[in-house]
Design a protein around this nucleic acid. Sequence first.
DNA 1: CGACCTGTGTAGGCTGTCTACATGAAAGCC
DNA 2: GGCTTTCATGTAGACAGCCTACACAGGTCG
Lengths: 106, 106
Amino acid sequence: MKADALRGHLDSLILAVVEKQPLHGYAIIEALSARSGGELDLPTGTIYPALRRLEKAGYLDSSWSEVGGRKRRTYELSSAGRRALATHRQEWKTFSQVVSGVLGEA
Amino acid sequence: MKADALRGHLDSLILAVVEKQPLHGYAIIEALSARSGGELDLPTGTIYPALRRLEKAGYLDSSWSEVGGRKRRTYELSSAGRRALATHRQEWKTFSQVVSGVLGEA
DNA sequence: CGACCTGTGTAGGCTGTCTACATGAAAGCC
DNA sequence: GGCTTTCATGTAGACAGCCTACACAGGTCG
């Protein structure tokens, strides 16, 4: 899959994946891979900056913990993040309908 | 609709819109707007560079004509462009399934 | 004669994803 | 005891693509 097809959609995907339970960065990468049937295999250099951006935007809250001697930063959806996710879902629906419509079936 | 949601999909849309009949740049903008129910309203500064990029890549061929004293550069799909469009359609299908799958319905 | 529509195009900026690198602890293998 | 892999977080810099803003020009309409 082309890399920058994701542009502008990655945020939605991250928010969606931490919706049900909080996850740390590494687990988010694995969750995205699992949920996409292996199609998404995002490098850490993509996901960590994205998480920081989302936290700064107020959509995620983070907290540190230590599991088996390793430090984890766990992110969970804020209420603003929940609202943003709902908006993103709606925008995705519109967007995908538009693209599908223009591409046609041919 | 968010601007850079298009990232990496604009090429596909342009190729799709000139598939049935050749069009010039300005008409492509209008065709995209019409086909998307007004959702897509792309600035000329987006479309013209994209057309040049696609021609350079060998997916479009262009020819000049003059209609009512105005010069038009009309683009048509090359055979390579036709193949690229088919590939893009397939990639879009995969991509949209992946995103829809991750976003879930919730 | 000014505003708007048609029509093509460039310059520069922004932003988000990528590659590559850096660090470190634990676990498994030889 | 050493080596590699896995888990885990992060930064720096490059690159591409879409954006805004601008520039030019002929036609039409009020």
